[in-house]
Amino acid sequence: MKVGVVVFPGSNCDRDMYHVLTDVFNFDAQYYWHEKSLPKNIDAVILPGGFSYGDRLRAGVIAAHSPIIKDVQKMAEKGIPILGVCNGFQILVESGLLPGVLLKNESLNFMCKWTNLIVENNKTPFTNQFKLHAKIPIPIANGEGRYFVDDDTLKQLKKKNQIVFRYTQVVNGSSNRIAGVCNEEGNVVGMMPHPERAVESEINPVDNKPSSLIFESLLVKMGVTN
C-alpha cells in the first residue's frame, strides 16, 4: 500500500505525516521531493503542511508550479486518492485541483488552536468511515486558512457534495464555515486542519479516535481493512 508524501522546499509537516502513516497506520509511505516524479504504482498521494517557498507571494502558489504537480494532476485524473493538508490544501487550490481560494484569516493573525469539525461528505476516500455529521476535534495552525468562494460557486459545491468538512463555529471567517472540500469526483480532498496532529492520544487533549478515521478510511478504500 504505497502512499507518497510530497515534499516541497519549506514543507514542515512532512515528517509528522510520515510518522503517522508508517508508525501509527502501517502504510508503506515514501517521501517524494518536488522535483522528482511520482511512480505509476502509487496508491495515494499526500501533500503535507508547511510553508512551501516561505508562503511568499501567496501560500502555495509557487509550489503549484513544481514539476511534481503535473504528476499529481495525472494521478488526480486517474481517480487516485489525494489529500492536501494545510499548505498542501493551499497548493491543491493554487494548482487548480480544488475550487476556491484561501485568504488571510479574519484576525489577520496566524492561528494555532483546537477546533471541531463536522463531516459533511462521508463518501470520499478519507471520510468513508465516518457517520455523516460526525464531530472531529482537531487543531488548526495557519495564517491563510480562510476558505473563500463566491455565492454561485458555493451553491455548486453544495449541489455536488463537495464540502467535506465544516467548522462547528466561526473560526477564521471562511465561507459557510468550510474547513475542507473535494473535487467533483471526490478523490481529491483538501483540508486546513491537521489530522496528523490529532491521531495519537498522547498529544490529543480531547479524543483521537475521530481523526484516526481519516486514515482508516484510506485503509478501507485501499482494501487493506474493511
Partner: peptide, 11 residues
C-alpha cells in the same frame, strides 16, 4: 501563544 504554531513536530 495562539499565534505560535505550538503543535508542529507532534511532540
Amino acid at each position: 501563544y495562539g499565534q505560535y504554531d505550538h503543535e508542529v513536530g507532534i511532540r
